[in-house]
Write a protein that binds this DNA or RNA. Sequence first.
DNA 1: GCTACTTTGTGCATCGGTTCACAAAGGGAT
DNA 2: ATCCCTTTGTGAACCGATGCACAAAGTAGC
Lengths: 225, 225
Amino acid sequence: MKSASQSRDRGIPEATVARLPLYLRALHGMAERGVATVSSEDLAVAAGVNSAKLRKDLSHLGSYGTRGVGYEVEYLVYQISRELGLTQDWAVAIVGVGNLGRALANYGGFVSRGFRVAALVDADPEVVGDTIAGLNVEHIDELEAVIKRRGVSIVVLATPAAAAQEVCDRVISVGVTSILNFAPVVLSVPDSVDVRKVDLSIELQILAFHEQRKAGGPLMAVDGQ
Amino acid sequence: MKSASQSRDRGIPEATVARLPLYLRALHGMAERGVATVSSEDLAVAAGVNSAKLRKDLSHLGSYGTRGVGYEVEYLVYQISRELGLTQDWAVAIVGVGNLGRALANYGGFVSRGFRVAALVDADPEVVGDTIAGLNVEHIDELEAVIKRRGVSIVVLATPAAAAQEVCDRVISVGVTSILNFAPVVLSVPDSVDVRKVDLSIELQILAFHEQRKAGGPLMAVDGQ
DNA sequence: GCTACTTTGTGCATCGGTTCACAAAGGGAT
DNA sequence: ATCCCTTTGTGAACCGATGCACAAAGTAGC
């Protein structure tokens, strides 16, 4: 048999975790369109993955399908949501209310499922006190207090690169262990803290690399495809 | 021996490509601080990776280091830039000038290295004609014309989810083969087109998953850490 | 109940990527 | 010119993820 207790082997592969939100989104769309039941094949297409991969991913959560039939949409939505921790709501603070921070504060996708923007913080006296997306922008001096008061557990860093590490250290000092970093710096954090990084410029550079291959590559081998 | 010609095996692993921009950023920082030469160990730390991985990554580009010494910063910057295709400049169009599109248009990191926002396009008559980040916002009806006129080769999709696929089809029809998609949909495109996806909500969900493990897991095994 | 059909869940081979650990290659000192 | 020290570049073992292909498990019809 497996390792410890039973089927639900509390070790879901990272690659699987990264795809669960994708499945969830596809399932939400189906639920809205009144679909009651879906096969791994159809769901895989909707999520843009291979059906064998989808089945293996779902099998890590448990055995929630019915052979010969498929998966019940509502039930699967619930199971994935629970696994991802979206059945509770998460208070998110956005630090740095520049163009990007503002966009994030107004971004509907955040609020929609399980997340709630609970605080906006900035250093610029010009914006502190403004109301953005229905929230008062607080001063960076209040950072620790605000995080504790609002029960923030996830912090989004949208500050300039130079300020990111300091803000990062400060939020960690009051117990935050999950950070989404938009600043183009490598944050140094204890192992116990999770950092996910989004760098728009890096994505463009990766595209440029492939684009160059397509455009400039004809004098090279014709591997093409 | 290897496959074809020689050392420079024109097949750089995808994982390596994704890290090159990281090295490049670290190197730029060093160049600014006047560092002339750097060891794989130091560069690895600055980029937040393991030094063996860094060396293997760089070895895919060629043999640009000196044993016993390290890498010459300027030279390595040039080599990586060239490999990524950043020695030419890329005209980027941003479609969808909502909060996010606006943030992207003003985002310094884009322009800084090799990329130039060459066009802004939106469907809302309210914003068409506005000047944002020094650029006139053009109407979506002009999409194909603008792309051809400005020589755009990379398109950033910051439209609502519902509009993304149509815009995507249209830009592909005029030859665009690189797309950075911020809309929360799975785009369907021919194999010859590269799509990279950034979904802010998905990143948060992944964080929530791990956060839940840390916080809610105490009744499970105490792997904690 | 039995047969035919559908679709899941998974064992297994494979592949790409990571990491270790060391030989090869260079610099500098004497 | 020889020796020692540093650091690169890479062979090889390892690890996780992918995808095939099929047995197991269910439904439906008769």
